[in-house]
């Protein structure tokens, strides 16, 4: 009897993840729950708009973001240029729309680096324990003891300024919190009955980690990644602003603000709109992350 219940529990998670029909249904249920709450609904909608904007930027942007028009510099917001024009006469709204592609690229690459690395370090450290755990957690602690912007700055200074290096630097600083979380989660399941059961059935450590532990860590890791995207956006913009991230003439929002700074006292729109875009996206990720936590991870409440 006991063995029977163990087996169903062991299979429950992977089955629901591998069966496309039920995972689609679960995803729809989560989305419905997110939209039901005004704040997480707002977050989800803003991020969907960001995705769409990045996808169809050429269709949405009223002007070419890089066309210089020296007869039309520093125009305040008007009917032809809703967000005004910059010091080279480029349309700010079009630049913000194209800039969404850069933001999305940064977010995507950072999550693709940070999620697997954090999961790998955290689950193996929690599962194996011992000196391996100690070494891994010491390394994690050293990275965690820095404010992320200062560590990213140092890495970018070492690697050289530029968008690619900024992404690598942010990735290098963003994995430790995820590793910590994955380890803590792993410690709570490590001695669970279904893990012992699959070990007794002869499953290898690798198989147990991949098939039984990683899926269980996924919800909280996803929540954590979503929440950390808010700070990734801010760090990337900060690097761009300091001149160490994306370089002009790329329409990265932080870099746009850096250039607008020279003209801001008389031309507020050069900094106000790109910064508003950063605030909106970062806010949306925070709200979506909070909502996802409520929807996916009831045990944290």
């Amino acid at each position: 009897m006991a063995i029977h219940t163990l087996n169903t529990r062991d299979n429950a998670m992977p089955a629901s993840l591998s069966n496309p029909n039920s995972s689609v249904r679960r995803l729809l249920a989560v989305i419905r729950e997110l939209l039901g709450n005004p704040s997480s609904g707002f977050g989800l909608i803003v991020i969907s708009i960001l995705l769409l904007t990045a996808l169809v930027a050429p269709l949405l942007a009223p002007y070419d973001p890089n066309i210089v028009n020296l007869d039309n510099v520093l125009q305040p917001p008007n009917a032809a240029h809703w967000f005004g024009t910059d010091e080279l006469g480029r349309d700010i709204m079009s630049r913000i729309i194209y800039g969404s592609r850069i933001s999305l690229t940064i977010i995507t690459i950072v999550s693709v680096i940070v999620g697997p690395v954090g999961l790998l370090v955290g689950t193996t450290a929690g599962y194996f324990g011992g000196w391996y755990d100690t070494v891994m957690m010491r390394i994690t602690d050293i990275f965690l003891s820095f404010p992320s912007l200062i560590l990213s700055l140092a890495f970018v200074a070492a690697l050289g300024a530029g968008l690619e290096n900024a992404i690598i630097a942010i990735g290098l600083t963003a994995w430790p919190p995820i590793a910590r979380l994955a380890r803590a989660e792993t410690l709570t399941f490590r001695n669970a009955d279904y893990i012992s059961a699959s070990r007794m059935q002869g499953a290898s450590s690798l198989r147990i980690i991949l098939k039984s532990i990683v899926p269980m860590c996924m919800p909280s890791v996803l929540v954590r990644i979503t929440l950390s995207m808010a700070s990734v956006i801010l760090t990337a913009a900060g690097l761009g602003f300091l001149g160490l991230g994306a370089q002009p003439p790329l329409p990265e929002w932080g870099a746009m603000i850096a250039i607008g700074r020279r003209y801001m006292l008389d031309n507020w729109w050069l900094v106000a709109f790109p910064g508003g875009a950063i605030l909106l996206v970062s806010l949306a990720f925070n709200l979506l992350g909070d909502g996802l936590r409520d929807a996916l991870d009831p045990k944290q409440h």
Binding site: A230, L234, A237, G238, F241, G254, I257, R261, M264, L265, W268, V271, A272, P274, G275, I278, L279, S282, L283, N286
Partner: peptide, 14 residues
């Protein structure tokens, strides 16, 4: 929590 602090600083200056 969500604002880019350098931007808030500039808006404050303006």
């Amino acid at each position: 929590h969500s604002m880019p602090i350098f931007w808030t600083g500039m808006i404050g200056l303006i």
